[in-house]
Computed example of a mutant assay.
Amino acid sequence: MKQNSNWKIIHDKYPFEKLIEATFLALKEKGNSASNTEIFNKIIEILNIDDNFLEIMHLDTQKSELEYQLAWARTYLKSFGIITNSSRGVWSITPEFAKFANINPQEIIEEFNKNKKIKENKQKDKVLEQKLEYVEENEEFQTWKNRLFKILTNMNPFAFEILAQRLLRECGFVDVEVTKKTGDGGIDGTGKFKLNGIFTFNVAFQCKRYSGSVSASAIRDFRGSLTTDIEKGLFITTGSFTRDAKEEAMKSGKKQIDLIDGEEFMEKLAQYGLGLKEIKDYEIDEKFFNNI
């Protein structure tokens, strides 16, 4: 796991051992399975994490430092066989550990580091070692996402709106139009979404190329721009949303605002193959060949 000054700020308050343990407990409380968002929100509750720590970003990514470290916590737990994830991004506790009330984070860290050292010692060729060091990255923070994030945040604002329009069409929206007017009150486009082929909603969306977090005030401003004929609002960003922003978006008694953060936006681009092409690879089982 890469370390930096922001890592130390988080680690001093919430040691990595605590994050591993909290991840396991969060899954337990969610019925042994949950999405990344559900796990993250439950950990905030379990550790009573202060909002200030949620705003600390990891290097030049669209992720907070806390999210980055929690992704590594899941990787450590997965390597130990405690949790697994589906192709749809749902994490679950494996049957072997489903009945466990708690775990030993230090044992997990020691085992992970031991296995890592074994792998490193097997790399005798210096070129291979350098290649391993380059590609060795948390599976949830693959290099393609980092590169794509930089591309998205450097796009022309209108081009990014056009990209969002294309993605919404792939997601089932129709009559998607990008607003070209200035001073439109924050609305970048509109469209219609038909739910289950029956119910149709008029939707307005806003796109923000942020590297940081969208605040609650931005959500309130967007909501204030929605006209009476708009049933739903959709806020798209390359960054993330603060906890207050998420709460504001779902505030009862007000028009609901759906949120798509940078992580979900990139996953959707990959899902529909917009500017991305999947490359398949193979892991070689050397024992298989050695034992023939």
Rank of each mutant, 00 (worst) to 15 (best):
E17G: 06
E17V: 06
E17T: 12
K18Q: 13
K18H: 13
K18T: 11
K18M: 11
K18N: 12
K18E: 09
K18A: 08
L19C: 13
L19P: 08
L19R: 13
I20L: 06
I20N: 00
I20M: 01
E21V: 08
E21I: 11
E21D: 15
A22K: 03
A22F: 02
A22R: 00
A22N: 02
T23D: 05
T23C: 09
T23F: 02
F24N: 04
F24D: 05
F24S: 04
F24G: 04
L25F: 15
L25D: 14
L25E: 14
L25Q: 15
L25G: 04
A26P: 08
L27D: 00
L27V: 04
L27N: 01
L27W: 01
L27K: 03
L27G: 03
K28M: 07
E29H: 10
E29A: 14
E29M: 07
E29F: 12
E29T: 14
E29D: 12
E29S: 13
K30T: 03
K30A: 06
G31T: 10
N32I: 12
N32C: 07
S33C: 09
S33N: 03
S35T: 15
S35D: 10
S35H: 08
S35F: 07
N36S: 11
N36E: 05
N36Y: 01
N36P: 05
T37S: 12
E38Y: 00
E38T: 09
E38G: 06
E38H: 05
E38L: 10
I39L: 04
I39F: 00
I39R: 00
F40E: 10
F40T: 12
F40G: 05
F40C: 11
N41M: 13
N41P: 04
N41S: 11
K42E: 15
K42D: 08
K42H: 14
I43K: 01
I43C: 08
I43V: 11
I44V: 15
I44W: 12
E45S: 14
E45L: 14
E45K: 09
E45C: 13
I46A: 11
I46E: 13
I46G: 11
